[in-house]
Design a protein around this nucleic acid. Structure first.
Lengths: 156, 156
DNA sequence: TGATTATACTTGAGCGGTCAACAATCTAGC
DNA sequence: GCTAGATTGTTGACCGCTCAAGTATAATCA
């Protein structure tokens, strides 16, 4: 039943639809798990991970937004939650009063470590169960050609 | 800047992150266009398309939900909008009073035809600009191995 | 220096979706 | 035929995010 639909509408369409379906399904799966066992959204996790690799475990909010592909306001809202939970804090920028840094707290680091273990294991399991290393490289390479930021190229 | 990050965290992770980023970016692009030029959500479009290939341009709401990977209530809400806009109507099931069919109206058919042309063209453009037919087949094949319904396999 | 424009962030309104609870109906088993 | 359970669809409460507008600060340039 999985591939009977959408015959010969062109391979582009087929790929696009599978992409959407796969995202919906996989995301729902992993997100539910992450939420249940750690109380984190996929984006929450992503943000913590990004912060952890910033200098001194911090990043400008704008930079963060760009990295995880959220709006400025989206970031504000998301960080609201993580701040309330005590996982990230704020730091002012000495040279530019407009920017505030989001920095991982110790609890945040701890939370990330704890959730990483199970979450990354799930991701690995789900993927390596279905693909060989070789195929994963192919997949990553192909996906990497798609636009990866809000507007970007896409000349029209 | 696109692929410098996330080195050697394992190819699974790399693929997963690219998948998420690509989805966020591409989806935002296409969805914005579709919304602006036709006032439809990606899911709206998907639903119209699914209905158009149902028998007599109709489907049970449950069936529809399953096809587009939405919740039952998600479908209710989405169809609310399409009904208000006059693109779909309801029909009762003679043999089971619980189910109601969602059926494409003539306006709905028209809307789908109109929006298909530009939307599908955008999808094709975006993809065929970056991939060969061969690569698209690979991509589709690989994506097709991922879970494609809510819970599904994923034995754990 | 002072006006103009650009950037960083926040806020209110709203949208699209989920989940949990519910009402209605169908189906099985006794 | 009746009760017990499953299935279909809707609703209320809420969540995560966007967009548009607003505030505050920086940068540009006359």
């Amino acid at each position: 039943m999985s591939s009977q639909v959408i015959k010969e509408r062109g391979i582009e369409l087929e790929a696009w639809i599978r992409f959407l379906r796969a995202h919906a399904a996989v995301t729902r799966l992993l997100s539910a798990e992450l939420l249940e066992t750690h109380g984190l959204t996929l984006n929450d996790f992503d943000v913590l991970a990004q912060l952890s690799r910033g200098p001194d475990h911090g990043l400008k909010r704008a930079e963060l937004a760009e990295r995880v592909l959220l709006t400025a306001s989206g970031i504000t809202r998301l960080l609201d939650g993580l701040e309330r939970a005590g996982y990230v804090g704020r730091a002012e920028c000495p040279t530019d009063a407009r920017v505030t840094y989001a920095v991982l707290t110790d609890e945040g680091r701890e939370k990330l470590r704890g959730s990483s273990r199970t979450h990354l294991a799930s991701v690995r399991a789900l993927l390596s169960e279905r693909f060989t290393k070789r195929e994963l490289q192919q997949l990553a390479e192909l996906l990497g050609r798609l636009p990866m930021r809000g507007d970007a190229d896409c000349a029209d």
